[in-house]
Simulated scan of single mutants.
Amino acid sequence: MSEMITAEEHRMAAEGPEMEIVHLLRAVTVELSLHSARFANRNGMHPTDVRALIALMDARRAGEEMSAGRLGGTLGLNSAGTTAVIDRLERAGHVRRVRGRTDRRRVVVEVDERAVELGQAFFGPLIGRVVELLRGHDERELAAIRSFLDGVREAAAEAD
């Protein structure tokens, strides 16, 4: 008795495993975007505010200062849009404007510890699950995953 192959299964087989992974990556991106939108909604934030907090936390983790101009460039915003985001986040107590450590004339934006805790409370369980999934892979597999994701990030950054 032969099994019937659906049109979708036939299409996926014709596309190959590469396209299957591309579609899976797209689905992951959509799910992560929805998760981030839920966080924004529950905390009365604009999705761009969440992206700004992520950029600020990434800079903090790297030990780098983030000026308003650099933040705007990272987010793809003009000066007025960047100021609006920073003002909203500052009013909510998520960020503060402070003098730079190395150049006291420079004003930089820092994420407040309360924002870090808020993000950890919401995103922590998801991060924990991802870490557990990664622990199931050996160093060679982790290197391949890292290389692939870094390549996708670079390709997306260049795609205009």
Rank of each mutant, 00 (worst) to 15 (best):
R51D: 05
M57E: 14
R104T: 15
I86D: 02
G69V: 04
T29D: 08
G44R: 08
M12I: 15
E18C: 01
L126S: 07
H35Y: 12
V131S: 08
Q120G: 12
A143W: 07
R88G: 05
L25M: 13
T82K: 08
F148K: 11
P47R: 03
H137Y: 15
A59P: 07
V95L: 08
P125Q: 03
A14C: 10
M4G: 04
E141Y: 03
D58L: 11
L142C: 01
H46F: 06
E154A: 11
R114T: 13
R42L: 15
E154T: 10
R61T: 05
P47H: 00
R135N: 09
V50I: 07
V108G: 02
V50S: 05
N43W: 01
E139A: 14
A14I: 11
D87K: 15
F39M: 10
L25I: 09
R106S: 09
G63E: 06
E20W: 07
V95E: 06
T82W: 07
R38M: 10
L25K: 03
R51N: 04
R60E: 15
A59V: 00
R129Q: 12
E31W: 02
G76E: 04
H23Q: 08
A115T: 01
P17T: 15
I86V: 14
R51L: 03
S36T: 04
V50T: 05
R140H: 13
P17I: 08
V130K: 01
M12C: 08
G72K: 04
